[in-house]
């Protein structure tokens, strides 16, 4: 792990703490009157605030998980630094892609 990846992983963890707490509170509140797609989409569609919230969440989670999996690949599967970095970056890009698609789907689609 380089100083930059260390910094990014700790930084994204700090970013995610309030996001996770907010996300959990919204889940608990949202299911109070039953859970329906209409209710969720009614809250998120066209909302720049929720788009920004989940876009930041996706980005932070993708970077955090990419770096973490890079470490696991290096330590548990004995990949070289370079191979582990490639694997970590690919996973990060996949998470960003899937996450961006989900955010687009609940806000604009």
């Amino acid at each position: 792990m380089t100083p930059l990846s260390y910094l990014l992983q700790r930084g994204t963890a700090m970013i995610m703490v309030p996001l996770i707490v907010t996300h959990l509170i919204v889940i608990v509140m949202a299911v109070q009157g039953g859970l329906s797609a209409e209710e969720i989409l009614g809250r998120t569609r066209g909302s720049a605030a929720w788009a920004g919230f989940y876009a930041l969440f996706v980005l932070a989670a993708a970077v955090h998980a990419g770096i973490g999996l890079q470490t696991i690949a290096r330590e548990w599967f004995s990949l070289s630094d370079r191979a582990a970095a490639i694997a970590g970056h690919l996973f990060m890009l996949a998470l960003i892609g899937l996450g961006a698609r989900a955010v687009y789907a609940v806000v604009w689609a």
Partner: peptide, 9 residues
């Protein structure tokens, strides 16, 4: 200590 295999691991 910041090179590969350094303290951040």
């Amino acid at each position: 200590v910041s090179a590969s295999g350094g303290c951040h691991n």
